[in-house]
Design a protein around this nucleic acid. Structure first.
Lengths: 203, 203
DNA sequence: TTTCCTTGATTGATCAGTCAATCAATAATA
DNA sequence: TATTATTGATTGACTGATCAATCAAGGAAA
């Protein structure tokens, strides 16, 4: 380990393998993709995939982490300058943006949701996502009583995930814009003062 | 196939194998269960499972059909005497009842959702479920303009599925009652006349 | 004795992971 | 400049395990 005796292929290969994994998962629809398939798509041998990632689980974990990081990188700047309902709207817009609503991304999400039930590391990753989404939503609902804000945040989160599911199945809401409209409609209703309804108090 | 020269083990075995499949899927969290595992839980050999179901895919298909049929059998009598919002409330209550909210059932749902992306037969099965849920919901929203009813029905369906997802992950809404309360709250808001909001018209 | 019921053993395929061996590029050296 | 040592990059071939599916044979009721 003196200096740089060889070129730096590592980041390129890692990225290529992750992209290949997303592509493969998107096409097969589940995590039962083979290392051969992934490596083939990335244009390398299976041995190289093992060399860089250690094993299949590690590669899939890195893939999911990449997807989550990408989502985080889109959300952070989008909501930074906003507060209140506008902040919530931005979160919704990014989570359901055409970019996140791509079939292969949805397929990967769904497949990882399933896998997270068994894989402890994946489960932790998802819990981080769930918590981040929740606290992001809460940060736009500070003008409401806490209990009411929690209620709405949970509803929004479930709605977003539900729309993902239906998208994965190819049924229900058609495109990104329709999904966003649906969630925003929920938000509008929840924020609008309504006569006397609901189990939670509101301002 | 003349009459009944031998006792009828078939329905008993089929049912036992389906129950075993649900149990196995619930425990492993995905569809990558083995025929050995399923057959073992049912107390028979793998060869017998093949004898009665033909192959693994057929067994899993029958398992999902059984779960969907069970849901249908619970919903039908529950909503038959009702109409309007009460009918919608009954649909919500059954879909999120403690019985449907069992971890192993949720796990099976989720796993089949994933598999339905590839398996055409499973996909058809799910489309039937989606359509039935939608038309059931619509039948309780006849007092609203059609466009508004469609909007609400889609929101309710997505919300229900989203709550399933979060339940599968073990995060978010805790139990059946909390999930029902969340969806009913959405329904209450959607049905309550609110000042001037939303992209869809309402009565 | 016919007919369903049931199984153990086997087979063929798939796949993750390993390994020893090349290739290529740079840095040190003479 | 030419040579050589060093090291990352890369692969083909192999292995061990897993698993769905098959089959031929052995019960047991009718």
């Amino acid at each position: 380990m003196n200096s740089m005796p060889k070129i730096g292929m590592e980041p390129i290969r890692r990225r290529a393998l992750i992209d290949a994994a997303i592509s493969a998962i998107g096409e097969r629809g589940a995590l039962n993709v083979t290392m051969s398939d992934i490596a083939g798509r990335a244009g390398v041998s299976t041995a190289l995939a093992h060399h860089y990632f250690g094993g299949k689980d590690d590669l899939l974990f890195a893939t999911m982490r990449h997807i989550l990081a990408q989502l985080g990188n889109e959300i952070r700047p989008a909501i930074a300058p906003l507060s209140g309902p506008e902040r919530v709207r931005a979160i919704i817009a990014v989570n359901l943006s055409p970019d996140q609503f791509r079939p292969e991304i949805i397929a990967a999400w769904l497949a990882f949701y399933v896998e997270a039930r068994r894989d402890a590391a994946l489960g932790r990753l998802f819990r981080i996502y769930v918590h981040r989404l929740h606290s992001d939503l809460m940060s736009g609902l500070t003008h409401l009583p806490r209990a009411r804000a929690v209620h709405i945040a949970r509803g929004l989160a479930a709605l977003i995930d539900g729309l993902y599911l239906r998208r994965a199945l190819g049924e229900g809401v058609e495109d990104s814009a329709a999904a966003i409209a649906l969630v925003e409609d929920y938000l509008d209703m929840a924020l609008a003062p309504h006569p006397s309804r609901g189990s939670q108090p509101h301002a």
